[in-house]
Design a protein around this nucleic acid. Structure first.
Lengths: 179, 179
DNA sequence: CCGTGAAGTGGGGTGGTCCTCCATTTGGTG
DNA sequence: CACCAAATGGAGGACCACCCCACTTCACGG
C-alpha cells in the first residue's frame, strides 16, 4: 500500500471518528470526505460501504472491549453481567456502534474481522462459561444476550441508564419469588 | 376540511402504510407522494414532519393495542408481561413503529395524541397495577419496561423472537436462585 | 538520477432525497 | 353562477450517495 494511500485512509478515519461522534451512524459521507480534505471517490474506494467505514471507526474500541472480556475470570455469571453492562454502556455513548454491530453482512467486507464478529466471539466465551457454571436460565443463547445488550443502547445515550437496563434484564423485571 | 383534502389525506396514508411496511421508517416521502398520486408539497402540508406521518400511519394499530391493555384484568404481573409481549411483537412486525414510539417531541404535533403518549398511558396503568400487586422488582419504572420492549423489537423482525426476548428479560437472564 | 507504469486521486455527473415557494385550480357557499 | 379561501402540484434549491474517468503522484528498476 502506498504511503499517500495510508495517509488518506487515516485522515478519513479521523474525520469519520469526529463526525460519527457528533451525528451518529448516518453522518454524511460527503462531509467526512470534506473534513478529511479528500474527494468523495477516495472515501468510497477506501471504504466501499458505510458499514465498512463504521466497522473501521469502531474497530479499536471493540477490540479493547473484547480484550477486557478475555481478561475476566471471576464468577462466570457476574463476569458476563459486568461485560454486558460495559458493552451496553459503550454502545450507548458511542453513537453509531450499534448499527455496525447489528448490521448484517454486506458483501464488501470479511465477516470474520468485523465488529459484529469480534463481539460475537468474545460474548460466546463468556456465555459458555456462565452456562457451564449453571448461572444462566435454560435456553439462553449468545445471540439473546447480545441482542439484549445492544438493543438497549438504541434507546438511551446515557451509559448509566444502559447499565441499569442491562442489570434489570439480567435479574429480571419480575419480582423474585419468595414462596 | 374540504372533501378533496380529506381524500388526499387518506390516499397519502394508504400509500405510506404500504411503503413504510416495505421499507421501514425511513421510506422515501417522495415515493409515498408519488404512490398517492399527489405532489410532495401536499404531503408536507398534511404531515409537516416524518414523525407526524408515522404517527398517523400507526395510530390505529396503537389505539387497538391500548384497548387490549385496558381490557386485561387478570393477574397484574402476567397481564403486564402479556401486553409487553404484544407490544414487542407488534413493533417487530410493523417495521417503523419503534421510531415513532421512541422519537422525542418534534414541535409539529400535540404530544398528547401521539403513539408515544398513548402507549405510555396504557403501560403506566399496567405497571402501576403490577407494582401494587408486588409483582415487579423494586425500582422498575414504566419507562424501563417500555424501553425494554421497544428496544428489543429493533433487533429482530420476527414477532416470536421478540416475544421470547421479552419473556427472557421479564424472568431474568440469570438462572433463578435455588439456595 | 530519472523514466515509466501502476496506484491513487478528485472533480463533475447522475439520480435520488427533503422541503419551500407560488401561480393555479377546485370545492363549497351565498 | 360568482366568488374566495382552501387546496394543489410542479419547479427549484440545497443536500446526499455513488460512479466514471482524465489526471497526478509515488516508488521502483535501470
Amino acid at each position: 500500500m502506498r504511503a499517500d494511500g495510508r495517509r488518506n485512509r487515516e485522515q478519513i478515519l479521523a474525520a469519520a471518528r469526529h463526525l460519527v461522534g457528533c451525528d451518529g451512524a448516518q453522518a454524511s459521507l460527503e462531509a467526512i470526505a470534506r473534513r478529511a480534505c479528500v474527494g468523495s471517490a477516495t472515501l468510497h474506494r477506501h471504504f466501499p460501504s458505510r458499514r465498512a467505514l463504521l466497522d473501521a471507526v469502531f474497530h479499536d474500541g471493540v477490540v479493547r472491549l473484547c480484550e477486557r472480556a478475555e481478561a475476566l475470570d471471576g464468577d462466570p455469571g457476574a463476569d458476563l453481567e459486568t461485560w454486558l453492562e460495559e458493552l451496553a454502556a459503550y454502545s450507548a455513548t458511542t453513537k453509531g456502534v450499534t448499527d455496525a454491530l447489528l448490521a448484517g453482512p454486506d458483501g464488501h467486507i470479511d465477516e470474520r474481522d468485523t465488529c459484529h464478529g469480534l463481539i460475537g466471539d468474545a460474548a460466546a466465551r463468556l456465555v459458555d462459561r456462565a452456562k457451564d457454571a449453571g448461572a444462566l436460565r435454560d435456553g439462553v443463547a449468545t445471540d439473546d444476550v447480545l441482542a439484549l445488550a445492544c438493543s438497549l443502547s438504541t434507546v438511551t445515550a446515557d451509559p448509566d441508564a444502559a447499565r441499569r437496563l442491562v442489570r434489570l434484564a439480567f435479574g429480571g423485571v419480575r419480582a423474585p419469588h419468595r414462596e
